[in-house]
């Protein structure tokens, strides 16, 4: 890394070599001649550039002052307008403080520092001499360890090195419990009342008028030890439509109640809440990836990336007129997993 050209204006960096000019290739004409700038020729332009740089640094100082004005003179009073004003002041203060310095320095470099382009030679990334030296050193090192001559040491070391990192992997075993059958059950059970989300108040069948959509959680969910985890599986969308629009398959005729049906809200694609209910088309739309489910075909997928229909929660009515689940979901809710089967 010796022999640098040190940016002297005389060095033009002409690099065309004799013998390169032929009829096949143009000869490199070398660096174009340097054109002096305004500030190089005219002392007044130089003075002007100097003033401009100083003004830019002054702008920076004013910006910093503006920051402090915003910080100390705009007391936060819980209104959004004040906060917005403070954010604007702090931000513009910082912006001016930074841009003043930055633009000032660059303007200085562009107008007042030398602008002669300089050429520097590249060097071989690896010289042959270095390579030979390095090879010899490494060979000597390997030779001195004697590892080639002592296979017993080599093999036992290899074995030890392979085994030694294993504890570092297995020590992470307690990051979480094994899945078990956690994904196959939800908080729903036979007789669990359907309750409004988030208030937890139970819902009567007569509350659910045609065209309505209720966001439902199981009653008593708030007493659950793992509230959010249970809620993440148990949320249900409850809708009522004309019983004639529903076409229940054999065995599922009594899963609804007079046109009231309950379906899991967790998308069978990757688990977003499928909560968009179109009450005239009876379509359910997932806002994340647009899977569309048709309520009149037991939530069969009619568009988008999901494959399986949303699981239906079998419901009925208890003697007080409240909607209840008659069992848990008959299949795991939410996205597919390897063991789902």
């Amino acid at each position: 890394m010796a022999d640098h050209s040190h940016g002297s204006p005389e060095s033009t960096g002409v690099v065309a070599r004799p013998g390169q000019g032929d009829v096949q290739k143009f000869q490199n004409p070398g660096l174009p001649p340097h054109r002096p700038r305004l500030a190089d020729r005219d002392p007044r332009a130089e003075k002007r550039a100097e003033r401009q740089v100083a003004i830019l640094f002054l702008v920076s100082i004013i910006g910093t002052v503006l920051f402090f004005v915003g910080y100390f003179l705009i007391p936060l009073d819980e209104t959004i307008a004040t906060l917005r004003l403070q954010n604007l002041t702090l931000g513009l203060g910082t912006a001016f403080a930074m841009l003043g310095i930055g633009v000032g320095i660059v303007h200085w470099a562009k107008t007042l520092m030398p602008d002669h382009e300089v050429s520097e030679d590249r060097h071989e990334i690896r010289t042959e001499a270095d390579r030979a030296d390095a090879e010899k050193i490494i060979n000597d090192i390997v030779e001195e360890t004697g590892i080639k001559r002592r296979p017993l040491i080599r093999n036992t070391l290899l074995g030890a090195m392979i085994l030694a990192p294993l504890p570092a992997v297995f020590i992470f075993r307690d990051l979480g419990p094994l899945p078990g059958d956690a994904l196959r059950h939800t908080y729903w059970d036979s007789g669990t009342r359907l309750a409004r989300d988030p208030s937890g108040t139970p819902i009567r069948a007569s509350d659910v008028t045609i065209g309505s959509a209720f966001h439902v959680i199981p009653e008593g969910l708030s007493d659950s030890e793992h509230y959010l985890e249970e809620k993440a599986k148990a949320v249900v969308l409850l809708m009522r439509l004309n019983p004639e629009s529903l076409n229940p398959s054999p065995g599922r005729e009594d899963w609804g109640y007079e046109g009231i049906v309950a379906y899991s809200k967790i998308c069978t694609h990757v688990g977003c809440p499928v909560a968009l209910y179109e009450q005239q088309t009876h379509h359910l739309l997932c806002p994340c990836h647009q899977s569309t489910f048709d309520l009149t075909q037991e939530c069969k997928v009619i568009f988008g990336p999901a494959v399986r229909p949303l699981p239906q929660l079998p419901i009925s009515v208890d003697d007080e007129g409240y909607l209840i689940a008659t069992s848990d979901f008959q299949q795991p809710v939410g996205p597919s997993f390897w063991e789902r089967g």
């Binding site: 604007l88 912006a95 001016f96 403080a97 841009l99 930055g102 633009v103 320095i105 660059v106 470099a109």
Partner: peptide, 21 residues
């Protein structure tokens, strides 16, 4: 060095201006 160093302040200034508004 002047251009690259100054450019840090420019980038910071632009981000600050965006964050302000």
């Amino acid at each position: 060095a002047a251009k690259a160093g100054g450019f840090f302040f420019i980038v910071f200034g632009i981000i600050a201006a965006i964050s302000a508004a």
